[in-house]
Simulated scan of single mutants.
Amino acid sequence: MTLLHLDNLTVLRKSCPVVDQVSCTITEGEFVGLIGPNGAGKTTLMRAALGLLRHEGHSSLSDMTASARAHHAAWMPQAREIAWPVDVETLVALGRIPHLPRGARIRDTDRAAIDAALAQMGLDTYRHRVATRLSGGEQARVLIARMLAQETPLLIADEPIAGLDPANQITTMRLFAELAEGGRTVVASLHDLGLAARHCTRLLLLNKGQLVADGPPDEVLKPENISAVFGVSAFFRRTDQGIVFQPLETLE
């Protein structure tokens, strides 16, 4: 089943394309890593696909009503700001808003989704702590839990593992991969190419607003792509423990 379809999606800043005629189709069961250098257009692409930015071309998500979109896709923006000093459980519960009738209180089904999201992110013991008093990495985990509690078939996250320590980065990437194996779909912008190579089923490589490569990690992370887009050399090897990818040196 197709969960997101983009056709010539373009975002202009004045007359300059920030995202330039990007087309792709994303189906259920994929863990898609959106990669590219700073300023490549990753955040702009995701926000335009969600209908949060004016764009040309077509996005299947932006064509939906707000209510339908909230049941179809959960969004985690790059900004980690938590404005109100609420406890973790209350913040995660906000993910259930699309499922609640107007004026309704949290029900047993909602409580189960909240508890499951807290458990998935290892936050059971944090539920009564004030979210604004947590570290940046802990806040990121809480916001991922809020996204999980929304229980949508599609999750879109902008740099979800930024600021997490290595153990929580790996745990989160494994969780996303497991969700994809279970039939849900994750699209996440990522700067750690090693983790993207190990855990994503598909990579979309953006450069200067254009989609320059789309496919499995071993096809996208070819030396010619890495040198042309990132300006670095890299080590790539498929091992018994999975793909190992490590940028090595900048190119003169």
Score class of each variant (00 low, 15 high):
Gln246Arg: 11
Asn225Arg: 07
Glu224Cys: 08
Gly215His: 09
Gly36Val: 08
Arg96Ile: 00
Glu81Phe: 06
Val92Pro: 00
Leu4Glu: 07
Ala228Thr: 12
Ile26Asp: 07
Val19Ser: 11
Gly57Lys: 11
Trp84Thr: 09
Ala79His: 13
Thr171Leu: 12
Ala145Met: 01
Leu91Ala: 10
Glu181Arg: 15
Lys14Gly: 02
Pro217Trp: 04
Thr172His: 02
Pro85Arg: 09
Ile144Ser: 09
Phe230Glu: 09
Trp75Glu: 05
Gln246Met: 14
Gly163Pro: 08
Thr239Met: 05
Leu4Ile: 10
Arg47Asp: 13
Arg54Glu: 09
Met173Gly: 04
Met121Ala: 10
Gly57Met: 09
Gly57Asp: 09
Thr44Met: 13
Gln139Lys: 02
Leu248Val: 03
Asp63Met: 08
Val130Asp: 07
His5Phe: 03
Leu61Met: 10
Asp158Ile: 11
Ala131Gln: 02
Ala117Met: 01
Arg13Lys: 10
Ile82Trp: 02
Ala157Pro: 01
Arg198Met: 11
Gln150Thr: 10
Ala104Gly: 06
Arg129Leu: 12
Ile26Pro: 06
Asn8His: 15
Arg111Trp: 00
Thr90Ile: 01
Asn168His: 15
Pro166Met: 13
Phe230Lys: 03
Thr27Tyr: 01
Thr90Cys: 02
Cys200Gly: 04
Gln21Lys: 15
Thr185Gln: 08
His71Leu: 14
Arg102Gly: 07
Ser15Gln: 13
Ala83Met: 04
Thr2Tyr: 01
Ala113Trp: 01
Asp110Tyr: 00
Val19Arg: 13
Arg80Asp: 13
Ile82Leu: 12
Glu138Ser: 01
Ser227Phe: 00
Leu205Tyr: 06
Gly137Arg: 04
Thr44Lys: 14
Met173Gln: 11
Ala70Lys: 11
Arg102Asp: 06
Leu221Val: 10
Ala113Asn: 04
Pro217Asn: 06
Asp110Pro: 02
Arg198His: 03
Ile114Glu: 00
Arg111Thr: 08
Pro101Trp: 03
Asp240Ser: 14
Leu175Tyr: 15
Asp87His: 06
